[in-house]
Design a binder for these strands. Structure first.
Lengths: 216, 216
DNA sequence: CAATGGTTTTTGGTATACCAAATTTCGAAA
DNA sequence: TTTCGAAATTTGGTATACCAAAAACCATTG
């Protein structure tokens, strides 16, 4: 098992801070201060910031401090649209390419998700949610697709995290995951597409609601 | 007009060398030597290499020299599959979102492509080809989509470049571009999807042929 | 008091120095 | 002659030093 590199570790830490809200959207990320604060030099800190920029969590400005990203609703919706296309393609390919091991893995993740539902804190449950979707993408056996899909999930991380506040949403997600898993096991392309549409339509609605509520 | 940053300039230069074949696939990119050679320090050279790795033109190995990428045929085909999905989505969105200016721009690029057809060298004609596809993606008015699309075009750059050798292919491309433009101007989703399928199916066939021929 | 211009400070970009891991080289032993 | 291992070298990773551009501050002036 290879340890993550120093820049990746730093990126992970910053990412958690951003998702948890310790670093608020719009705040500048002064690389010197952050580096000192975390006991590393500017070089790996710079690389970490590039990683997060690639994930859309921070925005770079030439010759200025990078900012914690604060994308407008329209941007997020654009991402959801692309994510839907990517997930539908994943599903289609997975219906023909998924092995039994792939399906077993999915079933295991889904079981974990269900068992965590009542106990785990949001971030943990949320990461299991993510890994479920990534496992479907990987079942397509198309690495380029899985990688791009992962990148879009990451970009929507914060928005999705915000929508996971309410228990009711998480209940719906539970049912939708079951529907996805069932359709894939039956290798039923049409049902899988329908399930993805429902899932992402629901996500889009939730995000819209959160944005409206935030408009205070 | 903002000048590209130093790392971007370096990345551009390296990219040309890779596409032109000056840097052959599989060759190591020693950052110290390259930096010295180009009269810059290692820091921006490192960043440039990260950019190219993000584009899939070089592969990073922990604690080892990065290599010029040499993807197997299956990898490239995976990329074509995703590119098709992205272009179809672009087309669909562009049919509703494209403005008249967008269409004018496309017409202009297409005219440029036609006029260059007999005169320009491969790389120039090729870049016009790329810009045509990127302009369609931008006409979707979905920035995330256009950006991802651009990234996939870049990853397929070398493979596409290799297929552009034969005049006959380029003739076909000319006709297919006309079909794409026509369908989009008529805002005919179905026709546009058909045209994209034909275009990318053709591309996949060509790449396969080039790989078979290279198998010497 | 507000506006302006110049000076100081802050901060990202680049170059360089240093370190540790990986590779290569080369000689000793079987 | 071949093989194995230790020393030397190469090379990516990290820390630091330096520079130029941007921002903040402040005094001067209308």
């Amino acid at each position: 098992m290879s340890e993550p590199s120093l820049p990746e570790q730093i990126a992970n830490e910053l990412r958690r801070d951003i998702l948890r809200g310790t670093l608020v959207p719009g705040a500048p990320l002064k690389e010197r201060d952050r580096a000192l604060e975390m006991g590393v030099s500017r070089t790996p800190m710079r690389e970490a910031i590039r990683i997060l920029s690639q994930e859309g969590l921070v925005v770079l400005r030439p010759a200025r401090s990078p900012l914690v990203a604060d994308p407008p609703l329209s941007d997020i919706m654009d991402h959801v649209i692309v994510l839907r296309a990517l997930e539908e393609l994943s599903g289609e390919l997975a219906c023909t390419n998924a092995t039994e091991e792939d399906l077993d893995k999915l079933r295991a993740i889904n079981a974990k998700f269900e068992s965590e539902f009542y106990t785990a804190d949001r971030l943990v449950s949320f990461e299991t949610d993510m890994s479920f979707h990534m496992a479907i993408a990987r079942a397509s056996h198309n690495y380029a697709l899985a990688d791009t899909h992962r990148s879009f999930l990451a970009r929507l991380w914060r928005a999705r995290f915000l929508t996971s506040t309410r228990r009711r949403n998480r209940q719906t997600v539970l049912e939708q995951h079951a529907a996805l898993l069932d359709a894939l096991c039956r290798r039923d392309r049409a049902a899988l597409k329908t399930a993805f549409d429902a899932h992402l339509g629901h996500l889009a609605d939730d995000i819209r609601k959160v944005f409206e509520k935030e408009q205070t």
